[in-house]
Amino acid sequence: MNYFNKTVLLGCLLLVFGSLYAQEFKDGEALATAVYNRPDGDNSISIGTMVLVEKGHKPRIRQMYTFNLDLGNGNKYMMIRFKKPADISNTGLLTLDYEGDKETDQWVYLPAINKSRRISTKRRGGRFVGSDILYEDLRDRPVDMDKHRILRKEKLNNMETIVLESIPVDPENSVYDKKILWIHPETLLALRVDSYQNGSKEPVKRVLARQIEKKQGYWTVMKSIVRDLKTHHETHLQINKIKYDQNVPEDMFSLKYLEDPQREKVIIKQLSGK
């Protein structure tokens, strides 16, 4: 998964962060690789809240379960099940990333028609359920898709960070021109990410980690904010509960589960320790 996404954006959806010992990095690629390879558990279950905040308007709330399974070698499965608001309740998104060049599979389940539909995994620029998260931010982005360099060391929120610049090797495969990341070396989390688009000199989007917790040995972004710096629209992300390394079967990441939300309730019980 994209080290940037994995660090902050998807924190709400379930992203997990393992702790590694603070270390020196010889260059930007080494740092990006360390972030990308951060231990993040074999699987995880979480419930998260996404709040869309806009000045002068009532906040809009989305709540969802997220299930992750990492089989190694780039085989990563994820399923998101929306529970709120009512108009998207039980809508599901299943994403299967495979090793090598094999194309990602993705389906969306629409309860209104009780069917799942294969959808394009090439979509990058659209907003995910109206949030400030773009579809590209949900995708796995291997380290070698960007050029990385360390700019400086800087204190952020009284914490030492390494400032990393990442620029797409092929500008066609990203909606962003570049990203600047403030990496906290001890947790290998990005505490802040500024994204640039369309040749802008100023960042158009900023991601800020707000609360980080070590859960079952894995550093996890529990609260974060994604801020559109042009419109000042914000998406607040929060993990309400998360459990790593549970009994999440591989079978769960299938159309059988995607099309039957009742099936996952047995798995969800583990969040409550039942």
Binding site: I212, K223, Q238, N240
Partner: peptide
Amino acid sequence: NNDMIIVMSDATDVTFDIEI
């Protein structure tokens, strides 16, 4: 179980802590 928490110093956002 030595879980730890880091809270950013200016984290005062009111929309957090929404119950599920």
